[in-house]
């Protein structure tokens, strides 16, 4: 079917089977490889993108559900040539090891901060516990989010 969606601010038109997960459309049709495949069942969060500003597991979101909506991926999180404050914090805190899950982690964290500029420790854990990391960079992810939040690191 013909599908129209906005990806990172750009209107895209595709002819694709409606049940194709958004993940494969982003990666293979639009060349946006920053969003990763981890489990195919929404269990690990590696494929997290924003759909109209809310986090979505793109591996289990049929592209038809994205029709007419706005998709933001890791590539579109910050204006071109700039880093999102979270990305700066990720570098500052040496978060990534293998790095594979980090796009999804950052997208989940960005959503958290979009509605809660000063998350508590529990808020961070609640928002991030669905994003798995086999290198277990959780302590640094937590610290990096905290550093960007309004509370800063002071009361971490």
């Amino acid at each position: 079917m013909a599908i129209k969606l906005t990806v990172n601010g750009q209107l895209r038109q595709l002819d694709i089977e409606a049940d194709t997960p958004l993940l494969w459309v982003l990666r293979d049709e639009l060349g946006l490889k920053g969003t990763k495949f981890g489990c195919g069942k929404g269990l690990c969060g590696a494929c997290t993108v924003h759909l109209d500003g809310s986090p979505a597991r793109s591996c289990s979101t049929p592209v038809s559900l994205a029709e007419g909506r706005e998709v933001t991926t890791i590539e579109g999180l910050a204006p071109e040539g700039e880093l999102h404050p979270l990305q700066l914090a990720w570098v500052e805190h040496n978060v990534p090891q293998c790095g594979y899950c980090q796009s999804g982690q950052i997208m989940s964290a960005a959503h958290l901060l979009s509605y809660n500029a000063a998350p508590s420790n529990d808020d961070i854990v609640a928002a991030m516990s669905g994003n798995l990391c086999r290198c277990r960079t959780y302590a640094r992810i937590h610290a990096a989010i905290k550093s960007v939040s309004k509370h800063g690191e002071a009361d971490a």
Partner: peptide, 28 residues
């Protein structure tokens, strides 16, 4: 030294993993 060489490309989705390899006329 405390910075990681690969922190930035791995925080922006730019690091190319095996799964990201793309060849002309590639099939799956």
């Amino acid at each position: 030294t405390n910075t990681r060489h690969d922190a930035e490309i791995k925080s922006t989705g730019q690091a190319e993993y095996g799964i990201d390899v793309d060849l002309p006329d590639m099939v799956y």
